[in-house]
C-alpha cells in the first residue's frame, strides 16, 4: 500500500497570534511551529495502515526551510520518506493553488491512498484535500473518524451534523481526518535518530513541471487582517447565594441581553 500524507506546518494552537506590519499576515518570529493537528492524525492513520498491510508512507509538504522540522517529526513517528516543496511562489499560493501544487507532486509518485487533515488550523480553508482529489480525478471523503480497508475498497465513517455516515470507495482515493480517528504516537528517541537518515527531497515548482507564473495571481487574496472584536464583558453577578445569583443571571439574560 503506497500511502501519501499531505502535511502542513502551522503555529501551535496555544500560540497568541499577532498581525505583522504588512497587515495581511501574522508575525512569525516567536511562534512555536508544529504539525497541523489534523495532519498528525493523518500520519498516525497512515502508519497504522502500513503496519497492517505493508507499504510506504510518504509525507508531502509545501513550506519554507523550517517546515523540514515537521517532516522530520513525521519521519520520526515512522513515515518512510518526505518531499518538501519549497518555492516562494508556492508559499504565496491560495488554497486552490496549494492543491494544484500538491496534486502535481503526488502525480509524480505511486499512490493507493492519500490522507490529509480536514483543514489546516492556520488558514482554515477546508479545501485542499478534496481539491487535490478532484484534480487527480479520484474520490474523496472528508471528516473521517474510522476506516477499514478490504480488497481495494475503503469503508469510511464520516462525521456529519448529529451523527455519522458510512461510505465506501474504491482505491485509490483521498480521505481527510477528524478528531477521534486515532491517538497519534509520539516520536521515540530511536525514531528521531532514524529519521535523520530517511530520504527527504526538496523540490521547486519547476521540478514539478509547474510554472511559478501560474501561481502569481491567486483567486483569493487577503486584503486585511484584524483581531476579532475584543469582548469587554466581565460583569460578575453578585448575590447572597447560588439561588440569588442564578435568579439575577436569568433576569439579565431575559431583560437586558434578550437571549432567552
Amino acid at each position: 500500500m503506497e500511502i501519501i500524507v499531505l502535511l502542513k506546518q502551522v503555529p501551535a494552537t496555544d500560540s497568541l497570534v499577532a498581525i505583522a506590519d504588512d497587515g495581511v499576515s501574522i508575525k512569525t518570529d516567536d511562534l512555536n511551529w508544529v504539525i497541523n493537528p489534523y495532519d498528525e492524525f493523518a500520519v498516525e492513520e497512515a502508519l497504522r495502515i502500513r503496519e497492517a498491510q505493508g507499504g510506504t508512507v510518504t509525507i508531502v509538504t509545501i513550506g519554507p526551510d523550517k517546515a523540514v522540522e515537521a517532516i522530520r517529526t513525521a519521519l520520526a513517528m515512522g513515515a518512510d520518506k518526505g518531499v518538501l516543496i519549497n518555492d516562494p511562489a508556492a508559499l504565496a499560493a491560495d488554497g486552490l493553488g496549494a492543491a494544484r501544487i500538491l496534486a502535481a507532486a503526488v502525480g509524480q509518485l505511486p499512490y493507493d491512498l492519500i490522507i490529509a487533515g480536514q483543514r489546516a488550523v492556520d488558514d482554515e480553508n477546508f479545501q485542499v484535500g478534496p481539491a487535490v482529489a478532484e484534480l487527480l480525478n479520484i474520490p474523496s471523503i472528508t471528516l473521517v473518524i474510522q476506516e477499514e480497508i478490504n480488497d481495494g475498497t475503503i469503508r469510511c465513517h464520516r462525521t456529519v451534523e448529529g451523527g455519522t455516515v458510512v461510505l465506501e470507495s474504491p482505491l485509490p482515493m483521498l480521505f481527510t481526518t477528524q478528531r477521534g480517528l486515532n491517538e497519534p504516537r509520539y516520536a521515540s528517541l530511536p525514531g528521531v535518530m532514524k529519521a535523520k537518515k530517511k530520504p527527504l527531497d526538496t523540490k521547486t515548482l519547476a521540478d514539478l513541471g509547474l510554472d511559478a507564473g501560474d501561481f502569481s495571481q491567486p483567486l483569493v487574496r487577503i486584503q486585511a487582517m484584524r483581531l476579532p472584536p475584543e469582548r469587554t464583558g466581565g460583569r460578575i453577578i453578585d448575590g447572597d447565594d447560588a439561588a440569588a445569583k442564578a435568579a439575577e443571571l436569568v433576569r439579565l439574560l431575559h431583560e437586558e441581553a434578550k437571549v432567552i
Binding site: 503555529p11 494552537t13 497568541l16 497570534v17 498581525i19 495581511v24 501574522i26 488550523v121 492556520d122 488558514d123 482554515e124 495571481q217 483567486l219 483569493v220 487574496r221 487577503i222 486584503q223 486585511a224 487582517m225 484584524r226 483581531l227 476579532p228
Partner: peptide
C-alpha cells in the same frame, strides 16, 4: 469581499475573491 476567521478564530481576515 468575504470576512472569515483564521488561526482558529484568533484572526479575522477580509479576503477578495476574483474570477
Amino acid at each position: 469581499m468575504a470576512s472569515r476567521y483564521m488561526y482558529g478564530g484568533k484572526i479575522l481576515a477580509d479576503v477578495r475573491l476574483s474570477g
